[in-house]
Design a protein around this nucleic acid. Sequence first.
DNA 1: TATTACAAACCTGTCATACAGGTATGGGAG
DNA 2: CTCCCATACCTGTATGACAGGTTTGTAATA
Lengths: 233, 233
Amino acid sequence: MENQGSGGLVSDAISAISRHIRDNDLMPGDRLPSEASLSKELNVSRTVVREAFRSLAAMRIIDLATGKRAAVATLDHGAMSLMIEHGVHTDQINVQQIYDVRRTIETRIVTLAAIRRSDTEATDLLALAQAMGHAVDDPARLMELDLSFHLLLAQASRNPVFTLIVGAFQGITRQTWPIGWKSRPTPASRELMLATHMDIARAVAASDPQQAVASMSLHFDESVRALLTAGLS
Amino acid sequence: MENQGSGGLVSDAISAISRHIRDNDLMPGDRLPSEASLSKELNVSRTVVREAFRSLAAMRIIDLATGKRAAVATLDHGAMSLMIEHGVHTDQINVQQIYDVRRTIETRIVTLAAIRRSDTEATDLLALAQAMGHAVDDPARLMELDLSFHLLLAQASRNPVFTLIVGAFQGITRQTWPIGWKSRPTPASRELMLATHMDIARAVAASDPQQAVASMSLHFDESVRALLTAGLS
DNA sequence: TATTACAAACCTGTCATACAGGTATGGGAG
DNA sequence: CTCCCATACCTGTATGACAGGTTTGTAATA
């Protein structure tokens, strides 16, 4: 209906749709108007509306599904994960820098988790640490357990932003984790890594923030050393 | 040429393009094939390629411009900013949680900045803090200076991931900052906020991490209190 | 020879239309 | 009142067209 601060029709459409979400206080799950009705309302072709939808979907602000109307999305780290991966692949970020951020974030996370974790989370965390011990010979599975462990820890912090950030690193971690694992060739060094996770889980389960932070700190010392050994700048 | 792990043609195209960037080691600024050639190569319509491009552009993985070919993009927090805003508007994140993350991150940032800052950054930081003092009566300008201050600090940490995260909070901060400002109605409380920024700048310029952390901590204590006073959950 | 100007080739932005196939909804059959 | 299905609605993809921005090679010029 109106001409916006024109940065291209698609940009304007993105703004209009975002505003529509805000102005109507749409919550996750709520559905948006159809492409056809939006294209009529904004006086643009369906092509433009579709490209705007795709953009918002790429940022996980809305969900698209064939046949169904677009819906407001819940928080998801998928997009951030891709962005971080891109940054690393294009040499704009290196792995050490990511580990510095992770250490900073996860030190805080483990403190909060030790204080706020639910009993279920404590149990699940211990179970994950234990499962890792049983998966020493299955690196792929071990890696997924490791990732789940850190993500669950973040959830236990009761701050979705921490969860988001930890999740954002999962994509690139999947690509670098095997490198770190290979640089821990001896059973002893591998056991140490598993034991550290168990220590963290136990400290969180015991609601002991100090001990949890100490274990997490050890975990990162060891991980960063492993990566350096592997020559990852 | 081949049929991928089909999650829709557009998804496949996104994967193919991402892979193209990785496999060819494209760096920021490098250009991608044209829509037409990609659509031929992937056996899909230009529509599909365009939607894939839009998705990647939304995540700031590529840059689009009319007439020119798509190019690999440099790291940018614009997309993350929108995602965080969306999270807050849909009540999936609250402002206090963001401040907890910011405090965690910025405490680390200020430590690194005190160690790694260039002389230019030290000068600019002091200049920004001073400029803030002169803008007490121009909230809009003051806010932008404040944002620039924290972003420059992040840059001085020499870790682009920190810069990215701090940048990601700018969007929502622009919307909540005025609330915090209004809850500091007395000249004294306003002076305190400005003085704190100057303290941070001075400590970083003096390469004094401890003092820098202390001042940053004070800054967040004060900010969070201001927000709580304003009733921001 | 070096430079400038320009036209042709190329490329993206947007639109209209068409159709296949997934989804939702109301109304009729039981 | 419940269950099922026809139908209207909606999204996914393809094609063709055209306007307008960009690049590039060539030819005229200094």
